[in-house]
Design a protein around this nucleic acid. Structure first.
Lengths: 91, 91
DNA sequence: TGTTATTAGGGTAATTCGGGAA
DNA sequence: AATGTCCGAATTACCCTAATAA
C-alpha cells in the first residue's frame, strides 16, 4: 500500500504555510512533519500530510475565553484517496 | 520476498522522487543508485532499489511532548534526523 | 520504414542544505 | 522556544541538440 501522493518541495510547503523554506526544514528536522530525502539529501514532503496540517488545525480557532483543553481535531483519513497515475503536469 | 526486478525508466523514477529526470541520471552517474544500461546507452532502474530509497529508511517516529493526547497523527514514516549521505566516497 | 516521446550530454540559473548568529 | 536572515557548498532545475526507444 503505497501512500501514492504527490511530493512537494520545501519551497512549495513554505509557500503554503507562508514561512521561510528554512523553517520547513526545521520542522522536518524536529520530526514535526514527515519528510523524504532524495539521494542528494534534499527533502520532499507528502502533499497529503501537508494539507492535513494546513486544514486539520484550522477547523476551530479564535477561542479566547474558552478553555484551551478542548482541542477539536479532525478525526478522519487525511488522505482523500489520490490514485497514482496522472502526471503532475508541473512543468 | 519478491525481488521486484521490474525496471523503471528515468522518467518514472523522477516522478516518484519529484525531481527532474536529469537528476536521476545524475544519481546514476554518481553511483548513488544502481542502473542498468541498454545497448543504446539509456538507463533503467530497479524498482526494488528505488522503493527502498524512497522510504526504506523505516525508522522510528519521533514523538516529543504531547499535550492532551489529542493528535490524529497522519501516517508519517519518516526519519527526522538521520545521516543521509551514502558511503560512496565519490567527490 | 517512418513518427513520436523519452533520454543522454553539456552548460547555466535557481533551490536547498548545513551551520551559525541576530 | 521559534522564526528569519547571512554565508559557502552542494544539489537540483531548465536551456539546448542529437541519439535511442517504442
Amino acid at each position: 500500500m503505497d501512500t501514492g501522493d504527490r511530493l512537494l518541495t520545501p519551497g512549495e510547503v513554505a509557500a503554503l504555510f507562508r514561512v521561510d523554506p528554512k523553517t520547513v526544514t526545521r520542522w522536518a528536522a524536529a520530526g514535526r512533519i514527515g519528510s523524504i530525502r532524495t539521494p542528494g539529501g534534499h527533502r520532499r514532503f507528502r502533499e497529503s500530510e501537508v494539507r492535513a496540517l494546513l486544514e486539520g488545525e484550522g477547523v476551530v480557532e479564535e477561542m479566547r475565553e474558552d478553555d484551551a483543553a478542548s482541542r477539536p481535531r479532525n478525526s478522519g483519513p487525511t488522505n482523500p484517496g489520490s490514485s497514482y497515475g496522472p502526471p503532475n503536469g508541473l512543468r
